[in-house]
Design a protein around this nucleic acid. Structure first.
Lengths: 344, 344
DNA sequence: TTGTATGCGTTATCAC
DNA sequence: GTGATAACGCATACAA
């Protein structure tokens, strides 16, 4: 691999002259620049980004950590963040961190290989985040509830997830449902746990009894699990023990719907169902599924702007937190479609 | 930010001793190691990955470039590749390159910021790949047909895409369909173009005339486009001008199916449909859609192994190409489900 | 306009 | 067992 040294040697000029020529510095004459460029091409010279980063004491990289790049929860966010960063010419790289593999993410964080990180994976422990966030690499954490993050360079962006679970349950109750089943998703998902808590709170608030046998556990949060778990619910619907189902994710709901239809149960006439997250799939089925939107994109735009602010030093954690807290976008919105019947 | 220099100064020992202690070298005594570790903690020392890379002349990073991290085409591949790399403790980072943003990918490539790259994005031009691939950074290109890549460190992994389009068209013909419509996807997608060519070839081979008005252009390859474009096909189905539709992607097919059902057209009784790629969504709908699987995962396992081989110098491009070419996994497989009727 | 010297943070090669 | 020193590839302040 050729370096600027080789170019300098070939041309009989100094290394710094080559460097400046390559970076189009006004200090260098056009003739020299041309010669340098030609020599570079001739020697097959390519820049060494690592050396540049070391010298500049900056990587120009933002790390985006996700546990699953498939989920719209992530991809929607990605798009928004990428747009904002692009405008500032900051590079975004994605790293996955899940139960199978977390090493890369931890290595990138612990070795300061980025100028900032957005962490959407729940597999990076609070302690770890706390330990490594610093002035040169602030860390934004999403989707966890912990208030315990004390580090000045850690920003915790959290919705009131329980509240959202509460809201959609309330929505069902207000439309006359009294026997509402809940289908939990993946056991390791904190998200579905919060929704479950919200579900419980809502029942309590309206004076409805919590029926243990109306709460179902899926082994995951996806379509297949929804389909499978709903098999165990069918009977209770037929015997009128259930008039609505709250699925912890839209994917679960779509899978469930499929099973219900196969079993000849009409949605929403025989049973109402709701999902969670407003994934695209929820509107693709018949009937389209009523769900709740968390305004993830708007939130992420704010996050991106805040992150950029922290990177260039124009914002502190305090500014950001203050701004986020009083922000209206943190309210979720129920998307009414065809899967809920008014039973009053 | 504290460096090993600071630790050395604090402890009154040399920089090299600190470095060796931190890397648990057998040359250093346990006492010293302990002192160093404590000092590091006290000073909040974190490693600088950039400096390490520069010194080692290696990044330990494989770049995975995709135009869209949502697609199963990508995520399936990702999983496989990640598994293989994990076993060798190689880090994988994902970068998106699409019509909106290509700068980051190009910067990473042109600045040698990885030890190898897998490129699934069609937005990185052949020339660019050719120009920057080198001994220290081989590039594997997927999903393009160009044979023009001459660089010794570029490996082009290409299925016979046209052949696949041909096969599934043949499948329809053999089941008695004679009036087969084709729905093209995104204009910029080379993939759907190949399928189109395959479709044409198949018609020709069976002596069927190509009806221009049975070929429809969608403005993209997703659900919404399938739904929308199918609106323009309805009439021709009712008037029996069409007995089957070949959608260029499963997403298109699912969107199309939705529209067909809404319009009261029965699939497959009134019209048969097929998709392409065996995306999970294609089995989630009613009726499940017959499609074709390209065995992407098996291919990617081979790719990953080949890539690792090239990184450690145990394999050359020649070895790899030879191996890939005679490989049975490059045959696709038709997944029969409920969306095609036998009309013979 | 060009060159010299220095430094970025780390590892590695020798001495001692 | 430890320390000095060079090297990795590049950028920059300053001198010429």
């Amino acid at each position: 691999m050729a370096t600027i040294k080789d170019i300098a040697k070939l041309l009989g000029i100094s290394v710094s002259a080559v460097s400046m020529a390559l970076n189009d510095s006004p200090e260098i004459g056009d003739k020299t620049k041309k010669r340098v460029r030609e020599a570079a091409k001739q020697l097959n010279y390519v820049k060494n980004g690592t050396a540049i980063d070391l010298q500049r004491q900056k990587t120009n990289i933002v790390l985006f950590i996700t546990d699953n790049p498939t989920r719209p929860y992530f991809t929607d966010s990605l798009q928004v963040v990428q747009n904002e960063l692009m405008m500032k010419d900051i590079d975004l790289v994605i790293i996955t961190a899940n139960n199978k593999h977390i090493g890369t993410a931890e290595r990138f964080i612990s070795e300061n290989r980025a100028d900032a990180v957005i962490c959407m994976s729940k597999f990076i422990p609070d302690d770890f985040v706390n330990m490594y966030a610093n002035k040169n690499m602030p860390i934004f954490v999403l989707g966890r509830k912990s208030d315990l993050i004390a580090n000045e360079f850690v920003v915790n962006v959290a919705l009131d997830y329980e509240r959202v679970g509460e809201d959609i349950t309330e929505y069902l109750i207000q439309r006359g449902h009294r026997k509402i089943a809940f289908v939990r998703g993946s056991k390791t998902s904190v998200g579905t746990k919060y929704r479950y808590e919200g579900y419980l709170r809502s029942l309590k608030r309206f004076g409805l009894k919590v029926e243990k046998n109306l709460i179902f556990e899926a082994n995951g949060s996806d379509y297949d699990q929804g389909y499978h778990t709903t098999g165990k619910i069918i009977e209770k619907i037929i015997s009128k023990q259930i008039d609505a189902i709250f699925y912890a994710t839209d994917d679960l709901a779509v899978g469930g719907l499929q099973k219900l239809l196969e079993k000849g149960i009409s949605v929403p006439d025989d049973v109402s169902i709701v999902g969670y997250n407003n994934y695209p799939i929820s509107k693709m089925v018949t009937p389209p599924i009523t769900t709740v939107d968390l305004h993830q994109q708007k939130i992420m735009r704010r996050v991106a702007k805040a992150l950029i602010g922290m990177m260039d030093g124009s914002k502190t954690k305090e500014d950001i937190v203050k701004r986020l807290q009083k922000d209206a976008i943190f309210h979720s919105e129920i998307i009414e479609r065809g899967s809920v019947k008014n039973r009053e």
